[in-house]
Amino acid sequence: IATATAKKPAPMNTMVSHLLVVEPEKLYAMPDPALPDGPTKAASTLCDLADREIVVIIGWAKNIPGFPALSLADQMSVLQSVWLEVLLLVVAWRSLPCEDESVFAEDFALDEEAARAAGLLELSGVVLQLVCKYRALRLEREEYVLLKALALANSDSVHIEDMSAVQRLRDVLHEALLEYEVSRRPEEPRRAGRLLLTLPLLRQTATRVLNHFYSLKLEGKVPMHKLFLEMLEAMM
């Protein structure tokens, strides 16, 4: 009986199970075949993809336990401040299996040469630095979904009215991460901390990517959808 109990896998943390169920479907970039390849097409593809990803992220956030309980104003403040961090975590996760490629979507992955040709070398470089960190940690899907929800709850927006409600959301997710690591990775007692310590690089990466998009907006050569512009402006 003792052996059977020891071999039985630990029950899945209910938060992790929930987060796995609400994981959104993959999006495709679908670059416009009518446009000639080059920086304008790449930037345009990326901005269009980001706009659709934001819609998906908003829908996903509504399924994060505790998020819908925030006031509408606070839900907006949280999303406006962290959407790009969440989006970058999605891209980093997609890029994990591919060495030296930034996988913005299943049909839009750039290696160094393609990134240079697309004028996205710098952007791809900062994404790859993040990917490198998660690859070194051998990030698992369960940890990824927890970290993504934590990135949402980790908003430091000065516009949040009820910070204690956001803190509660953060605490519940933090607790779920600790519980998951204790049950699944008891041999790595510092793993939860290591995962949380990737959040500063995620924020730094988001700031750099935001600057890239904002420069594109100022140049005015690439069409941007209204929601993307709205979210971009909210971060500036």
Partner: peptide, 19 residues
């Protein structure tokens, strides 16, 4: 919310239409 009307609408109604 006037400046952020699409986000507001998506959170409130959940309708991604006509963006």
């Amino acid at each position: 919310t006037e400046r952020h009307k699409i986000l507001h609408r998506l959170l409130q109604e959940g309708s991604p239409s006509d963006i």
